[in-house]
Design a protein around this nucleic acid. Sequence first.
RNA 1: GGGCGGAUAGCUCAGAUGGUAGAGCAUCGCCCUUACAAGGCGAGGGUCACAGGUUCAAGUCCUGUUCCGCCUACCA
Length: 883
Amino acid sequence: MAGQDTDKAYDPKGIEEKWYAFWLRGGFFHADPARPGESYSIVIPPPNVTGSLHMGHALNVTLQDVLIRYNLMLGRNTLWLPGTDHAGIATQNVVERLLAAEGKSRQDLGREKFVERVWKWKEESGGVILRQLKRLGASCDWERERFTMDEGLSRAVREAFVRLYRKGLIYRGRYIINWCPRCRTALSDLEVSYEETRGALYFVRYPELSGRRSVVVATTRPETMLGDTAVAVNPADERFAGRVGATLRLPLMDRPIPLISDGMVDREFGTGAVKITPAHDANDFEVARRHELPSVRVIDESGRMTGEAGAFAGMDRFACREAVVEKLKAEGLLVKEEPYLHNVGHCYRCRTVVEPAESIQWFVRTKPLAEPAIRAVREGETRIVPPQWEKTYFEWMDNIRDWCISRQIWWGHRIPAHHCGDCGQTTVETDPPEKCASCGSGNLKQEEDVLDTWFSSALWPFSTLGWPEATPDLSRYYPTSALVTGFDILFFWVARMMMMGIEFTGKAPFRDVVIHALVRDARGEKMSKTRGNVIDPLEVMDRYGTDAFRFTLVALAAQGRDIRMSDDRVEGYRNFMNKIFQAGRFVRMHVDAETSRELPEELSIVDRWILSRLQRVIDEVRRGIEEYRFNDAGQAFYQFTWHEFCDWYVEMIKPSLSPEADPLVRRNQRAVLLRVFETIIALGQPFIPFLTEEIWQSLPGGKRDSILRQGYPAVDPEKTDVDVEEDMGHLMEVIRAVRNIRSELNVSPAKKVEVRLKGKVEDLAFLREHEEILRRLARAERVVHKDPEYIPVKDATAVVNDIEVCLPLAGLIDFDQEARRLRKEVDKAGAELSVVTGKLSNERFVANAPADIVEAHRSRKDDLEAKLSKLSRNLELVTRYLS
RNA sequence: GGGCGGAUAGCUCAGAUGGUAGAGCAUCGCCCUUACAAGGCGAGGGUCACAGGUUCAAGUCCUGUUCCGCCUACCA
């Protein structure tokens, strides 16, 4: 509910654009290799040009931005290189859809016109996502923005291709590949996603040509039988003993095919006999090679049956499946049909069922490339974080298979190979050759195929820095410091960058590979358009502000776990933003242009306490960022800022800031307050850049440079003071004890009470010295010190260390209530005591546990015993007055 | 079929190197105490999935089991 005071709350509208423009104007994100400083570089995982910002990007980009801003503030020579990916199939699909709306196909336009059209689309509508990254606050060096199809990168692609080809690491050949009949292109194995699909297993009888016997085969794709050229059984399968070599009649086609034996056949599956369709199955293809069987292609590029399919020619493959089954039934050759759950490959771009098909394609020989890429991780040149992903990486790399890199689409890097019309040889050159390298003929035709988009992506970490030229950028920023990405493209992209990076530069492209989780919806479901559960990051930013959104992502980014995004979470952190904003207002109320930021010689106990705590949080935040434990960093910042700084420190120092305070005290207090608060603001900058810059600029100091220039807070060990932290901890506990009593006994907050502290003089010394704090934060009228002989009759009591906190509440006290409260305390202390005593009475514990642990238990035991006896006695006192 | 991850408060999750179970949200109570009600103060709530084992000591290490996810694979 929006109250009328909402104008007092933090409103991020307007300030985000303002400061982003300010940073751009100041060139803060622009890297200059000539400038000094240790290099820190990241290349962005380039989003598709067709893309628009989703949660995955938002998380990915936020984490990178934290790293970049942190390193920027550390004064390193920092580069974050942005750009987009041409996304071959995805982009082509987008433009094809636009054409379809005009009633045209890409074939109507022809290749050249179509590609022109895609470029036009790219110029007009591509890259919206980059604007959205700016909205997120991404501190990219936009002057270095690259596109995988721009001139430099295309050059790098051709160069890489030629070098690999000449080393024999790229080859062309006829193999079974995954074919998408909708996209009409080959796909790599990775681009096929398998989905569990309900289908049927058909058992088909293949009669022997001579004799009365027959062989029954099982298949999930009966339409492919039209292309069968054999039936195979396992050589050791005695069911078929003596029958291998027989000739079968291929039903529906009336073609004679042999019964062969091959070790690949699993005797347990189906009937133990497999139909062999070399043109449409990878296994069958291999079998056919071994047995020199012919190959008959019965499904064409668009998924229709070819002329080889006899009566079924021209039918769609799925219609054909039904027709084949009907026909088999009619002929009495369908033995049975079982429901069958199996994995069916789908095109990862358009979800069409993929058809394995035999065709001529280009491949990368991956084994020789994989070996050094494996070694780089094994030997620690590149670190994978969190390390459990290493295993996945090795698993895949160890079993890597050759990579089909040619695509029969038009949008992409055309393969730099020219086929000779005269001698048939292929010439591969970086620049278009004039004549055939083998026969000298000028009758050359460039290869029609383009490269898999991931081929250019694989070069991204160095192609963007100028490779193959030896540029200053390349020597300065390569290898990059970290790659931040989701695990979903570990194989697609990371593994391939590792291979190509090492192959072409001799060095692994990253020091650290940081794998983050997936962002899911509040119920843990993967966000998808079809599910309709997509949370739009832009909408979240509109509603809660970018900083709140960023902080949410950071706070939830625990290693190795998926993130559930929900409004509640963002709202909570939006409140945190407001808290910081309000704290800023408070600080501004109390400081002015004259306020020094120098810490005074003499520091109050409270100041020493906050400074000591501050060192800890600085340490935690820095370590968190450096170890990619973003959530730990975020939590430490949150906890300290809200609960220690705002809830305790600010409340404790208010009197020293008031006009009634001693002027010197006041001046010093302002200085410390400002200093501490500015440190907090600087500390938070990588997470919440807009709010921190806004506050930074609003603090006194005239027209200021960006907070990015202030240096990142560093731990000053001199300021850490464990004694002060302990003393203050006690004081805070006493305050909490009073508050607890008041609250439990329903004493109105407005009611001032007397607080009696009972204990030895030396134990009370610190409290006596800082009594004012206690009085105010506990809302006490006065604090009275009592010696250990004092008997708290008619007092509500609590025990804090060696001190008893007593509230004389005669007339107000509800003795039932107080008895219940005390009993609870007694039970709690008693339970703990029995655990500790139990351990200590175990002599093996005393003998084996480290001395410090035993000692800690001993003193804990003493404390608890003392506490328990005090509590029990007080409980007894109260019980006397029970009604 | 292999591999990985998860199972901790009502919900969502933290809990490096084993040593007295934490946070946020939600819940309950009291408060508009002039930085902040997008707030303050206080409270309740957990046999850390189950069964064994190692250890003086296990949420944490080992083994097994059960349920969830995910990745991967040439059972047609």
